[in-house]
Structure formats: C-alpha cells, structure tokens
Nucleic acid binder design. Structure first.
Lengths: 137, 137
DNA sequence: CGGAATCCCAATGGATACTG
DNA sequence: CAGTATCCATTGGGATTCCG
C-alpha cells in the first residue's frame, strides 16, 4: 500500500483514490453502537478502571441486563476489558479495562471533546436543514 | 452539571456516576454506520475537500447509489458538508466539507491512528476469545 | 447524472421469563 | 447477582425501478 488515511490504506486509481476494506469502519461501528461508549466511559472514571456488573447496570440509565451482557462480551472479545468472576454466593463479577482498553481513552477523549465543542452547532444545522426541507418541499 | 467525560455530563449518585443522555453516542453512532467514515475519508484527501457524486460512488467500493445519497444527506444535515448543484445537462453535483467538517478531521485521525496501531492486537484477542469459547463450550 | 420510490431481508435491540 | 433464552418490533441497508 502506498498511502493510508484515517487508518485505511488506499490505492490511487485513474478516477481517484480507492480505499480497501479494513479496520476503522469496523471498530468505529462497534464503538458506535448504543451502549459501548457508555460502558467505556464508566470504566474510564472508575477507580482502578474496574466495576462490577451491577454497578454498570445501575449507572447506565435504561440499559437492560441483556444489552449490558452483550456489550461487555463484545468488549471482552476485543481485548478491551477483562472479566473477573468470583464464585461466591451470590456471585460477583467485575469488569476491568485492559492496558489496550485504557490506551484507547485519550484518543476517545480527543474525539469526544471535538463532539462536545461542535455538538451545539450540529444541532443548529440539523434544525435549519429540517426547517428548510419543510418550507420548500 | 458537575462533571463531564467523553463529552457526556454526569451526576454523582450514591451508587456511582450516572451519565445523562447526550451527544457522544449520537454522533459516534452516526459516524459509525457503514459508509460515513469512508465518505469523510475521501473528502479529506480530495483537493479542496471537494468531490462530485460520481467520484465518491466510484471511489467507495460496494456502495449503492441509495446509500451514498442517504449518507451524504445525513452529513449535509449535520452541517459537515455542503451540496453544490449545477443545473447543467447532464446535471453535476459536488460535495464539499464545511469548516466544521474539516475541523473534525484531526480528531478523527487521532482516533483512527489508535485503531490502526491496535487493530492487529484486537484481531488476535478476538481469535483467542473465539477459540477459547469453542474449546470449553 | 444524480437522485427518489418501492420492496424485501437481515440485524439490532427491547421486554419478559427462567436459572446456577 | 449475573447471567441465558425466547419472542417480537424497529431499523439498516441491498436490489431494483423510475424520474428530471
């Protein structure tokens, strides 16, 4: 591959650059689902980057047991967090960011800080766009 | 709001922080769909951050006319690009990043560079996880 | 050329009930 | 407590056809 932008290698063709399928969309799509960012954010600010299942469940408003489990399984599969099971009665399970999971936080923070700065303007743009669409059909 | 992390304000409750619904997930979910990042990436490296519909269509492998149109409409609605229509025969339409759209590129680049660095390790983790799951049920 | 409209299928994710 | 299993409504997105 000659070049890469946004993590995606691309080749120059006669009608412009053509990207080849690879990571960024895949990961962004994973992180962009309904709950993943919230789970990561909670672990980010937790002491030791570690929380138990019920703490996540109570902290994330509206999440169901099923979706929290699925989200945690995916993050565990990606190597972004570890699952610690304590076979007590009743059982206790803690989730902890891995080194890779923690290393993602600055990049995520950089991106979300842009979002925080530009969100109000985006909202204005959306309302203006919708208003214009209604106005002239 | 007392605190904010990853662009999301949160309140401290007796059982940990509770985030309130707001921007980051929404934007990440939008950018994390199947084609948005590819469109942004193409405009990022285009001269003048500007390309016509057919250039995007040919550059992005596998995208359908419908999905390219929808993706561009959403980005336009968000104020991240502008649509320039030239009423010639045949018609020509160009899409150009706005100032806000261009301002997103460094943050996106920061995030995707993390992805590029960690993608191989993530793939390893996934294969190890899947292999372990098959092994012991 | 650059769409819009329609049809259809697969995936996402919510609600609920059950379990070690 | 921390799941798993099942059912079901909604959405995402591909294929195709038609239009200015």
């Amino acid at each position: 591959m000659d070049h890469a932008i946004h993590g995606r290698p691309y080749e120059q063709t006669n009608d412009g650059p053509r990207f080849r399928p690879c990571a960024p969309h895949g990961v962004l799509a994973r992180l962009g689902d309904k709950w993943t960012i919230l789970v990561m954010s909670h672990l980010a600010i937790a002491t030791g980057h570690r929380l138990r299942f019920s703490e996540l469940k109570h902290g994330i408003d509206g999440i169901t047991q099923r979706m929290l489990t699925l989200t945690l399984r995916n993050l565990e599969r990606d190597g972004l967090l570890n699952r610690h099971y304590f076979p007590e009665v009743p059982p206790r399970v803690e989730y902890e960011l891995t080194a890779m999971g923690a290393s993602m936080l600055p990049a995520l923070e950089g991106f979300t800080s842009w979002i925080r700065d530009n969100w109000p303007h985006m909202e204005e743009c959306r309302q203006a766009f919708d208003a214009a669409k209604i106005k002239h059909g």
